[in-house]
Write a protein that binds this DNA or RNA. Structure first.
Lengths: 244, 244
DNA sequence: AGCTCATGTAAGGAGCGTTAACATGGCACG
DNA sequence: CGTGCCATGTTAACGCTCCTTACATGAGCT
Protein backbone atom coordinates (compact mmCIF):
# COMPACT_ATOMS: atom_id res chain seq x y z
CA UNK A 1 0.00 0.00 0.00
CA UNK A 2 2.89 2.33 0.23
CA UNK A 3 3.24 2.52 -3.49
CA UNK A 4 0.19 4.62 -3.66
CA UNK A 5 2.10 7.36 -1.95
CA UNK A 6 5.15 7.14 -4.10
CA UNK A 7 5.52 9.71 -6.75
CA UNK A 8 7.33 7.38 -9.06
CA UNK A 9 8.30 3.85 -9.31
CA UNK A 10 5.99 1.09 -8.33
CA UNK A 11 3.10 0.07 -10.47
CA UNK A 12 -0.08 1.89 -9.94
CA UNK A 13 -3.58 1.57 -11.14
CA UNK A 14 -5.64 3.94 -13.10
CA UNK A 15 -5.71 6.32 -10.22
CA UNK A 16 -2.51 7.69 -8.96
CA UNK A 17 -3.65 8.04 -5.43
CA UNK A 18 -1.56 10.98 -4.48
CA UNK A 19 -0.94 12.95 -7.58
CA UNK A 20 -0.95 16.34 -5.99
CA UNK A 21 1.88 15.40 -3.68
CA UNK A 22 3.70 13.74 -6.51
CA UNK A 23 3.43 16.85 -8.64
CA UNK A 24 4.83 18.97 -5.88
CA UNK A 25 7.73 16.62 -5.52
CA UNK A 26 8.19 16.62 -9.25
CA UNK A 27 8.32 20.38 -9.22
CA UNK A 28 10.87 20.35 -6.44
CA UNK A 29 12.99 17.87 -8.30
CA UNK A 30 12.79 19.77 -11.55
CA UNK A 31 13.53 23.09 -9.93
CA UNK A 32 16.58 21.49 -8.43
CA UNK A 33 17.69 20.35 -11.84
CA UNK A 34 16.83 23.25 -14.06
CA UNK A 35 15.95 26.19 -11.91
CA UNK A 36 12.57 27.67 -11.13
CA UNK A 37 12.04 28.86 -14.67
CA UNK A 38 13.38 25.78 -16.32
CA UNK A 39 10.54 23.37 -16.14
CA UNK A 40 7.07 23.14 -17.54
CA UNK A 41 3.75 21.82 -16.48
CA UNK A 42 4.10 18.97 -18.90
CA UNK A 43 7.49 18.17 -17.44
CA UNK A 44 6.04 17.79 -14.00
CA UNK A 45 3.37 15.48 -15.34
CA UNK A 46 5.94 13.36 -17.11
CA UNK A 47 8.09 13.22 -14.05
CA UNK A 48 5.15 12.06 -11.98
CA UNK A 49 4.43 9.42 -14.57
CA UNK A 50 1.10 10.77 -15.55
CA UNK A 51 -0.46 12.25 -18.66
CA UNK A 52 -0.06 15.88 -19.53
CA UNK A 53 -3.66 16.69 -18.77
CA UNK A 54 -3.77 15.21 -15.31
CA UNK A 55 -2.21 18.11 -13.44
CA UNK A 56 -5.13 20.29 -14.39
CA UNK A 57 -7.23 18.41 -11.88
CA UNK A 58 -5.03 19.77 -9.10
CA UNK A 59 -3.54 23.06 -10.20
CA UNK A 60 -4.90 25.75 -12.41
CA UNK A 61 -1.57 26.30 -14.03
CA UNK A 62 2.12 26.11 -13.55
CA UNK A 63 2.28 29.19 -11.38
CA UNK A 64 -0.12 27.70 -8.92
CA UNK A 65 2.09 24.67 -8.65
CA UNK A 66 5.17 26.76 -8.00
CA UNK A 67 3.25 28.86 -5.53
CA UNK A 68 2.32 25.71 -3.69
CA UNK A 69 5.96 24.71 -3.52
CA UNK A 70 6.86 28.15 -2.24
CA UNK A 71 4.12 28.01 0.35
CA UNK A 72 5.31 24.71 1.69
CA UNK A 73 8.80 26.10 1.63
CA UNK A 74 7.84 29.03 3.81
CA UNK A 75 6.17 26.76 6.29
CA UNK A 76 9.23 24.54 6.48
CA UNK A 77 11.42 27.61 6.63
CA UNK A 78 9.53 29.09 9.51
CA UNK A 79 9.71 25.82 11.38
CA UNK A 80 13.43 25.50 10.77
CA UNK A 81 14.13 29.03 11.89
CA UNK A 82 11.90 28.76 14.93
CA UNK A 83 13.57 25.54 15.92
CA UNK A 84 17.01 27.06 15.56
CA UNK A 85 16.05 30.15 17.48
CA UNK A 86 14.45 28.07 20.19
CA UNK A 87 13.10 31.14 21.88
CA UNK A 88 16.54 32.44 22.48
CA UNK A 89 17.89 29.58 24.54
CA UNK A 90 20.36 29.26 26.05
CA UNK A 91 21.00 32.91 25.39
CA UNK A 92 20.07 35.22 22.56
CA UNK A 93 23.56 35.51 21.16
CA UNK A 94 24.10 31.81 20.75
CA UNK A 95 20.59 31.31 19.51
CA UNK A 96 21.02 34.07 16.97
CA UNK A 97 24.08 32.38 15.59
CA UNK A 98 22.14 29.19 15.25
CA UNK A 99 19.47 31.10 13.44
CA UNK A 100 21.90 32.39 10.86
CA UNK A 101 23.27 28.96 10.26
CA UNK A 102 19.81 27.51 10.00
CA UNK A 103 18.99 30.07 7.35
CA UNK A 104 21.91 29.07 5.20
CA UNK A 105 21.38 25.46 5.93
CA UNK A 106 17.86 25.68 4.65
CA UNK A 107 18.96 27.50 1.54
CA UNK A 108 21.48 24.78 0.90
CA UNK A 109 19.64 21.62 1.77
CA UNK A 110 16.28 22.80 0.49
CA UNK A 111 17.56 24.67 -2.50
CA UNK A 112 14.55 24.10 -4.71
CA UNK A 113 12.18 25.38 -2.07
CA UNK A 114 14.38 28.37 -1.50
CA UNK A 115 14.37 29.08 -5.21
CA UNK A 116 10.63 28.85 -5.40
CA UNK A 117 10.31 31.17 -2.44
CA UNK A 118 12.70 33.88 -3.47
CA UNK A 119 13.64 33.53 -7.08
CA UNK A 120 10.51 32.42 -8.80
CA UNK A 121 9.01 35.90 -9.05
CA UNK A 122 5.58 34.84 -7.92
CA UNK A 123 3.28 37.81 -7.73
CA UNK A 124 2.68 38.15 -4.02
CA UNK A 125 -0.30 40.35 -4.54
CA UNK A 126 -2.20 37.52 -6.10
CA UNK A 127 -1.26 35.04 -3.40
CA UNK A 128 -2.10 36.51 -0.04
CA UNK A 129 -1.56 33.20 1.66
CA UNK A 130 1.93 33.09 0.33
CA UNK A 131 2.71 36.54 1.56
CA UNK A 132 1.39 35.67 4.99
CA UNK A 133 3.50 32.56 5.15
CA UNK A 134 6.52 34.57 4.18
CA UNK A 135 5.73 37.16 6.78
CA UNK A 136 5.44 34.49 9.43
CA UNK A 137 8.85 33.15 8.54
CA UNK A 138 10.32 36.62 8.62
CA UNK A 139 8.56 37.12 11.91
CA UNK A 140 10.85 34.58 13.52
CA UNK A 141 13.84 36.59 12.42
CA UNK A 142 12.25 39.77 13.54
CA UNK A 143 11.32 38.37 16.91
CA UNK A 144 14.88 37.25 17.42
CA UNK A 145 16.15 40.68 16.49
CA UNK A 146 13.76 42.26 18.94
CA UNK A 147 15.01 40.05 21.68
CA UNK A 148 18.58 40.84 20.85
CA UNK A 149 17.99 44.53 20.69
CA UNK A 150 16.23 44.48 24.02
CA UNK A 151 19.52 43.58 25.61
CA UNK A 152 20.90 46.96 24.79
CA UNK A 153 20.57 50.05 26.90
CA UNK A 154 17.43 51.89 26.03
CA UNK A 155 18.99 54.88 24.43
CA UNK A 156 21.15 52.93 22.01
CA UNK A 157 18.67 50.49 20.60
CA UNK A 158 18.50 50.34 16.88
CA UNK A 159 15.15 49.47 15.37
CA UNK A 160 14.68 45.75 15.59
CA UNK A 161 13.05 45.72 12.19
CA UNK A 162 16.15 47.21 10.69
CA UNK A 163 18.38 44.68 12.34
CA UNK A 164 16.21 41.87 11.10
CA UNK A 165 16.30 43.25 7.58
CA UNK A 166 20.05 43.53 7.67
CA UNK A 167 20.48 39.97 8.79
CA UNK A 168 17.98 38.77 6.26
CA UNK A 169 19.73 40.69 3.53
CA UNK A 170 23.13 39.35 4.34
CA UNK A 171 21.87 35.82 4.70
CA UNK A 172 19.99 36.03 1.45
CA UNK A 173 22.95 37.60 -0.28
CA UNK A 174 25.32 34.91 0.86
CA UNK A 175 22.84 32.21 0.05
CA UNK A 176 22.09 33.41 -3.41
CA UNK A 177 25.62 34.32 -4.38
CA UNK A 178 27.46 31.38 -2.87
CA UNK A 179 24.95 29.18 -1.17
CA UNK A 180 24.12 26.62 -3.76
CA UNK A 181 26.94 24.68 -5.28
CA UNK A 182 25.67 24.59 -8.80
CA UNK A 183 28.24 24.83 -11.48
CA UNK A 184 28.00 28.47 -12.38
CA UNK A 185 28.68 29.99 -9.03
CA UNK A 186 31.86 31.49 -7.79
CA UNK A 187 34.35 29.80 -5.63
CA UNK A 188 34.82 30.92 -2.09
CA UNK A 189 37.89 30.86 0.12
CA UNK A 190 35.70 29.59 2.93
CA UNK A 191 32.43 27.79 3.46
CA UNK A 192 29.43 29.99 2.96
CA UNK A 193 28.23 29.22 6.47
CA UNK A 194 31.40 30.59 7.95
CA UNK A 195 31.27 33.61 5.73
CA UNK A 196 27.81 34.41 6.97
CA UNK A 197 28.65 33.67 10.55
CA UNK A 198 31.63 35.99 10.45
CA UNK A 199 29.57 38.68 8.78
CA UNK A 200 26.82 38.46 11.34
CA UNK A 201 29.32 38.57 14.15
CA UNK A 202 30.98 41.66 12.79
CA UNK A 203 27.59 43.22 12.35
CA UNK A 204 26.55 42.44 15.90
CA UNK A 205 29.81 43.87 17.14
CA UNK A 206 28.99 46.99 15.24
CA UNK A 207 25.76 47.22 17.15
CA UNK A 208 27.60 46.77 20.38
CA UNK A 209 25.83 43.54 21.08
CA UNK A 210 28.96 41.48 21.11
CA UNK A 211 32.20 42.54 22.61
CA UNK A 212 34.94 43.08 20.09
CA UNK A 213 36.94 40.89 22.43
CA UNK A 214 39.73 43.34 22.00
CA UNK A 215 41.04 41.83 25.17
CA UNK A 216 42.41 39.25 22.80
CA UNK A 217 42.30 36.26 25.06
CA UNK A 218 43.99 34.23 22.42
CA UNK A 219 45.58 34.30 19.06
CA UNK A 220 42.26 34.14 17.24
CA UNK A 221 42.04 37.69 16.04
CA UNK A 222 38.40 37.95 15.22
CA UNK A 223 35.30 36.32 13.90
CA UNK A 224 37.30 35.54 10.82
CA UNK A 225 40.36 33.38 11.25
CA UNK A 226 39.93 30.06 9.53
CA UNK A 227 39.57 27.93 12.59
CA UNK A 228 37.52 30.47 14.35
CA UNK A 229 34.13 28.90 14.40
CA UNK A 230 34.76 25.35 13.43
CA UNK A 231 34.64 23.44 16.67
CA UNK A 232 31.33 21.76 17.01
CA UNK A 233 30.67 23.79 20.05
CA UNK A 234 28.92 26.95 19.26
CA UNK A 235 30.61 30.23 18.75
CA UNK A 236 33.96 30.45 20.33
CA UNK A 237 35.26 33.73 19.04
CA UNK A 238 34.26 37.06 20.41
CA UNK A 239 34.34 35.96 23.93
CA UNK A 240 31.33 35.86 26.12
CA UNK A 241 28.06 36.35 24.44
CA UNK A 242 26.30 37.49 27.48
CA UNK A 243 26.48 41.18 26.79
CA UNK A 244 24.42 41.68 29.83
CA UNK B 1 20.65 60.19 -39.70
CA UNK B 2 19.86 58.87 -36.38
CA UNK B 3 17.10 56.49 -37.33
CA UNK B 4 19.59 53.92 -38.42
CA UNK B 5 20.70 53.67 -34.84
CA UNK B 6 17.29 53.44 -33.36
CA UNK B 7 16.10 50.08 -32.32
CA UNK B 8 12.53 50.83 -33.15
CA UNK B 9 10.50 53.43 -34.75
CA UNK B 10 11.59 55.28 -37.80
CA UNK B 11 11.46 53.83 -41.28
CA UNK B 12 14.38 51.77 -42.33
CA UNK B 13 15.45 49.92 -45.38
CA UNK B 14 16.09 46.32 -45.90
CA UNK B 15 19.12 46.47 -43.72
CA UNK B 16 18.59 47.32 -40.18
CA UNK B 17 21.93 48.94 -39.82
CA UNK B 18 22.48 48.21 -36.21
CA UNK B 19 20.64 45.06 -35.43
CA UNK B 20 23.04 43.75 -32.87
CA UNK B 21 22.67 46.82 -30.73
CA UNK B 22 18.95 46.80 -31.27
CA UNK B 23 18.75 43.20 -30.12
CA UNK B 24 20.68 43.96 -26.99
CA UNK B 25 18.36 46.81 -26.24
CA UNK B 26 15.41 44.61 -26.95
CA UNK B 27 16.73 42.06 -24.52
CA UNK B 28 17.21 44.71 -21.88
CA UNK B 29 13.72 45.95 -22.40
CA UNK B 30 12.20 42.51 -22.30
CA UNK B 31 14.13 41.51 -19.22
CA UNK B 32 12.82 44.64 -17.57
CA UNK B 33 9.31 43.64 -18.44
CA UNK B 34 9.27 39.92 -17.91
CA UNK B 35 12.42 38.93 -16.11
CA UNK B 36 15.52 37.24 -17.43
CA UNK B 37 13.71 34.00 -18.09
CA UNK B 38 10.62 35.55 -19.53
CA UNK B 39 11.58 36.33 -23.04
CA UNK B 40 12.60 34.42 -26.10
CA UNK B 41 14.83 34.86 -29.05
CA UNK B 42 11.84 35.44 -31.25
CA UNK B 43 10.58 38.05 -28.85
CA UNK B 44 13.74 40.02 -29.16
CA UNK B 45 13.52 39.86 -32.93
CA UNK B 46 9.95 41.05 -32.87
CA UNK B 47 10.78 43.86 -30.54
CA UNK B 48 13.58 44.96 -32.83
CA UNK B 49 11.22 44.80 -35.76
CA UNK B 50 13.01 42.12 -37.72
CA UNK B 51 12.19 38.59 -38.72
CA UNK B 52 12.71 35.71 -36.35
CA UNK B 53 15.68 34.43 -38.29
CA UNK B 54 17.65 37.64 -38.32
CA UNK B 55 19.17 37.40 -34.84
CA UNK B 56 21.06 34.28 -35.85
CA UNK B 57 23.45 36.44 -37.79
CA UNK B 58 24.55 38.04 -34.56
CA UNK B 59 24.06 35.56 -31.76
CA UNK B 60 24.25 31.83 -31.74
CA UNK B 61 21.28 31.55 -29.43
CA UNK B 62 19.37 33.24 -26.71
CA UNK B 63 21.95 32.49 -24.07
CA UNK B 64 24.62 34.28 -26.03
CA UNK B 65 22.38 37.31 -26.23
CA UNK B 66 21.79 37.31 -22.50
CA UNK B 67 25.46 36.74 -21.90
CA UNK B 68 26.18 39.79 -24.00
CA UNK B 69 23.81 41.84 -21.93
CA UNK B 70 25.43 40.55 -18.77
CA UNK B 71 28.86 41.32 -20.12
CA UNK B 72 27.94 44.88 -20.92
CA UNK B 73 26.35 45.08 -17.52
CA UNK B 74 29.54 44.06 -15.79
CA UNK B 75 31.51 46.62 -17.71
CA UNK B 76 29.06 49.34 -16.80
CA UNK B 77 28.98 48.06 -13.26
CA UNK B 78 32.72 48.16 -12.91
CA UNK B 79 32.80 51.68 -14.28
CA UNK B 80 30.06 52.82 -11.93
CA UNK B 81 31.74 51.29 -8.92
CA UNK B 82 35.15 52.61 -9.85
CA UNK B 83 33.76 56.05 -10.35
CA UNK B 84 32.01 55.96 -6.99
CA UNK B 85 35.08 54.67 -5.21
CA UNK B 86 37.24 57.27 -6.91
CA UNK B 87 40.35 55.69 -5.53
CA UNK B 88 39.26 56.34 -2.02
CA UNK B 89 38.96 60.10 -2.20
CA UNK B 90 38.48 62.14 -0.15
CA UNK B 91 38.94 59.40 2.39
CA UNK B 92 38.26 55.69 2.31
CA UNK B 93 35.31 55.83 4.66
CA UNK B 94 33.35 58.33 2.67
CA UNK B 95 34.33 56.72 -0.59
CA UNK B 96 33.20 53.35 0.67
CA UNK B 97 29.80 54.74 1.47
CA UNK B 98 29.55 56.07 -2.02
CA UNK B 99 30.50 52.69 -3.31
CA UNK B 100 27.66 51.02 -1.48
CA UNK B 101 25.17 53.51 -2.77
CA UNK B 102 26.49 53.16 -6.27
CA UNK B 103 25.97 49.41 -6.03
CA UNK B 104 22.33 49.79 -5.13
CA UNK B 105 21.86 52.58 -7.54
CA UNK B 106 23.08 50.39 -10.32
CA UNK B 107 20.83 47.57 -9.28
CA UNK B 108 17.89 49.92 -9.31
CA UNK B 109 18.47 52.03 -12.36
CA UNK B 110 19.94 49.27 -14.45
CA UNK B 111 17.71 46.51 -13.18
CA UNK B 112 17.66 44.47 -16.37
CA UNK B 113 21.42 44.42 -16.55
CA UNK B 114 21.63 43.47 -12.93
CA UNK B 115 19.21 40.64 -13.55
CA UNK B 116 21.19 39.39 -16.48
CA UNK B 117 24.35 39.51 -14.43
CA UNK B 118 23.16 37.81 -11.30
CA UNK B 119 19.86 36.12 -11.85
CA UNK B 120 20.05 34.71 -15.31
CA UNK B 121 21.98 31.62 -14.31
CA UNK B 122 24.45 31.87 -17.14
CA UNK B 123 27.01 29.11 -16.91
CA UNK B 124 30.17 30.99 -16.07
CA UNK B 125 32.33 28.07 -17.03
CA UNK B 126 31.31 28.41 -20.63
CA UNK B 127 31.82 32.15 -20.71
CA UNK B 128 35.30 32.95 -19.49
CA UNK B 129 35.01 36.51 -20.69
CA UNK B 130 31.95 36.98 -18.58
CA UNK B 131 33.64 35.60 -15.53
CA UNK B 132 36.58 37.91 -16.06
CA UNK B 133 34.34 40.91 -16.41
CA UNK B 134 32.59 39.94 -13.23
CA UNK B 135 35.87 39.48 -11.47
CA UNK B 136 36.99 42.90 -12.58
CA UNK B 137 33.87 44.48 -11.17
CA UNK B 138 34.31 42.61 -7.93
CA UNK B 139 37.92 43.71 -7.99
CA UNK B 140 36.84 47.28 -7.42
CA UNK B 141 35.02 46.23 -4.31
CA UNK B 142 37.91 44.16 -3.18
CA UNK B 143 40.41 46.91 -3.80
CA UNK B 144 38.31 49.26 -1.74
CA UNK B 145 38.12 46.71 1.04
CA UNK B 146 41.86 46.31 0.96
CA UNK B 147 42.35 49.99 1.26
CA UNK B 148 39.94 50.18 4.14
CA UNK B 149 41.50 47.30 5.94
CA UNK B 150 44.92 48.79 5.55
CA UNK B 151 43.83 51.58 7.85
CA UNK B 152 43.64 49.16 10.72
CA UNK B 153 46.49 48.23 12.97
CA UNK B 154 48.35 45.30 11.57
CA UNK B 155 47.32 42.76 14.13
CA UNK B 156 43.62 43.35 13.81
CA UNK B 157 43.15 43.31 10.10
CA UNK B 158 40.48 41.05 8.83
CA UNK B 159 41.04 39.53 5.42
CA UNK B 160 40.12 42.10 2.82
CA UNK B 161 38.58 39.40 0.69
CA UNK B 162 36.21 38.54 3.45
CA UNK B 163 35.21 42.12 3.99
CA UNK B 164 34.56 42.52 0.29
CA UNK B 165 32.45 39.40 0.24
CA UNK B 166 30.41 40.59 3.19
CA UNK B 167 29.70 43.92 1.60
CA UNK B 168 28.89 42.27 -1.67
CA UNK B 169 26.55 39.86 0.02
CA UNK B 170 24.69 42.51 1.90
CA UNK B 171 24.43 44.74 -1.11
CA UNK B 172 23.23 41.90 -3.26
CA UNK B 173 20.81 40.77 -0.60
CA UNK B 174 19.29 44.20 -0.23
CA UNK B 175 19.19 44.68 -3.96
CA UNK B 176 17.52 41.40 -4.72
CA UNK B 177 15.08 41.43 -1.83
CA UNK B 178 14.06 45.06 -1.90
CA UNK B 179 15.95 46.78 -4.64
CA UNK B 180 13.61 46.66 -7.53
CA UNK B 181 10.16 47.97 -6.97
CA UNK B 182 8.34 45.50 -9.13
CA UNK B 183 4.95 44.51 -7.96
CA UNK B 184 5.74 41.38 -6.07
CA UNK B 185 8.32 42.64 -3.66
CA UNK B 186 7.93 43.52 -0.06
CA UNK B 187 7.48 46.94 1.30
CA UNK B 188 10.17 48.51 3.36
CA UNK B 189 9.96 51.02 6.17
CA UNK B 190 12.84 52.88 4.59
CA UNK B 191 14.48 53.30 1.21
CA UNK B 192 16.67 50.39 0.27
CA UNK B 193 19.64 52.70 -0.10
CA UNK B 194 19.36 53.79 3.47
CA UNK B 195 18.91 50.26 4.66
CA UNK B 196 22.12 49.26 2.96
CA UNK B 197 23.95 52.32 4.11
CA UNK B 198 23.00 51.69 7.68
CA UNK B 199 23.96 48.04 7.40
CA UNK B 200 27.33 48.82 5.95
CA UNK B 201 27.97 51.41 8.61
CA UNK B 202 27.13 49.00 11.39
CA UNK B 203 29.34 46.43 9.77
CA UNK B 204 32.25 48.83 9.49
CA UNK B 205 31.77 49.81 13.08
CA UNK B 206 31.97 46.16 13.93
CA UNK B 207 35.32 46.06 12.27
CA UNK B 208 36.38 49.11 14.18
CA UNK B 209 36.82 51.05 10.99
CA UNK B 210 34.28 53.72 11.65
CA UNK B 211 33.70 55.35 14.94
CA UNK B 212 30.09 55.57 15.79
CA UNK B 213 28.78 58.01 13.22
CA UNK B 214 31.90 60.00 12.58
CA UNK B 215 30.87 62.37 9.85
CA UNK B 216 27.45 61.03 9.16
CA UNK B 217 24.53 62.57 10.89
CA UNK B 218 24.35 65.12 13.51
CA UNK B 219 22.13 63.23 15.92
CA UNK B 220 24.08 61.00 18.22
CA UNK B 221 22.41 57.59 18.09
CA UNK B 222 23.86 55.72 15.20
CA UNK B 223 23.68 54.91 11.54
CA UNK B 224 19.98 54.34 11.80
CA UNK B 225 17.86 57.25 12.94
CA UNK B 226 15.46 58.27 10.26
CA UNK B 227 16.99 61.59 9.40
CA UNK B 228 19.94 59.99 7.81
CA UNK B 229 19.68 60.58 4.15
CA UNK B 230 16.23 61.14 2.92
CA UNK B 231 15.65 63.82 0.43
CA UNK B 232 11.98 63.41 -0.36
CA UNK B 233 12.24 62.48 -3.96
CA UNK B 234 14.77 59.77 -3.57
CA UNK B 235 12.77 56.76 -4.66
CA UNK B 236 10.70 57.14 -7.76
CA UNK B 237 8.93 54.01 -8.87
CA UNK B 238 11.50 53.42 -11.54
CA UNK B 239 9.06 51.30 -13.42
CA UNK B 240 10.06 52.26 -16.92
CA UNK B 241 13.51 51.72 -18.08
CA UNK B 242 15.08 54.49 -20.00
CA UNK B 243 17.22 52.66 -22.52
CA UNK B 244 15.49 53.97 -25.58
C1' DA C 1 29.19 45.36 -62.45
C1' DG C 2 29.87 42.11 -59.24
C1' DC C 3 30.92 40.57 -54.50
C1' DT C 4 29.63 39.97 -49.98
C1' DC C 5 27.20 40.72 -46.07
C1' DA C 6 22.71 41.40 -43.90
C1' DT C 7 18.07 40.44 -43.85
C1' DG C 8 13.67 38.48 -45.49
C1' DT C 9 10.66 34.47 -46.63
C1' DA C 10 9.35 29.96 -46.19
C1' DA C 11 8.97 25.75 -44.17
C1' DG C 12 9.58 21.71 -41.06
C1' DG C 13 9.59 19.88 -36.60
C1' DA C 14 9.03 19.95 -31.82
C1' DG C 15 6.97 21.05 -27.39
C1' DC C 16 3.66 23.26 -24.66
C1' DG C 17 -0.92 24.64 -22.92
C1' DT C 18 -5.49 23.73 -23.08
C1' DT C 19 -9.81 21.69 -23.72
C1' DA C 20 -13.25 18.11 -24.68
C1' DA C 21 -14.81 13.54 -24.56
C1' DC C 22 -14.24 9.21 -22.67
C1' DA C 23 -12.64 5.50 -19.11
C1' DT C 24 -11.99 3.75 -14.43
C1' DG C 25 -12.64 2.57 -9.93
C1' DG C 26 -13.23 4.00 -4.93
C1' DC C 27 -16.76 4.96 -1.99
C1' DA C 28 -21.24 6.54 -0.24
C1' DC C 29 -25.53 5.17 0.14
C1' DG C 30 -29.48 2.42 -0.39
C1' DC D 1 -24.21 -6.62 -0.99
C1' DG D 2 -25.23 -4.08 -5.20
C1' DT D 3 -25.18 0.16 -7.61
C1' DG D 4 -24.43 4.50 -9.30
C1' DC D 5 -21.92 8.86 -8.64
C1' DC D 6 -18.03 11.59 -9.33
C1' DA D 7 -13.25 12.56 -8.55
C1' DT D 8 -9.44 11.31 -10.97
C1' DG D 9 -6.82 10.04 -15.23
C1' DT D 10 -6.41 9.00 -20.18
C1' DT D 11 -6.55 9.87 -25.08
C1' DA D 12 -6.94 12.82 -28.75
C1' DA D 13 -6.80 16.89 -30.94
C1' DC D 14 -6.19 22.02 -31.88
C1' DG D 15 -3.60 26.16 -31.96
C1' DC D 16 0.21 28.54 -30.83
C1' DT D 17 5.04 29.74 -30.40
C1' DC D 18 9.55 28.67 -30.75
C1' DC D 19 13.93 27.00 -32.88
C1' DT D 20 16.38 26.14 -36.86
C1' DT D 21 17.73 25.64 -41.54
C1' DA D 22 17.66 26.53 -46.62
C1' DC D 23 17.14 29.60 -50.03
C1' DA D 24 16.03 34.23 -52.12
C1' DT D 25 16.84 39.13 -52.31
C1' DG D 26 18.23 43.94 -51.11
C1' DA D 27 22.16 47.15 -50.34
C1' DG D 28 26.65 48.92 -49.80
C1' DC D 29 31.47 48.73 -51.37
C1' DT D 30 35.28 48.37 -54.63
Amino acid sequence: MSWSKDGRGGPRGYHHGNLKEALVRAAVELIAQKGPAGFTFADAARWAGVSAAAPYRHFRDRDELIADVALRGFVMFEAALAKAWDEGRPDPGVAFERLGRAYLDFARTEGPYYSAMFEAAIPLDANPGLREAGDRAFGVLRGAAERLVSLMPTGQRPPAMMVALHIWSMAHGVASLFGRSDGGRRALPMPAEDLLEAGVLVYLQGLGLVRPHKAKDEPPPGPWSPGGAKPPGSVPPAGSRRTS
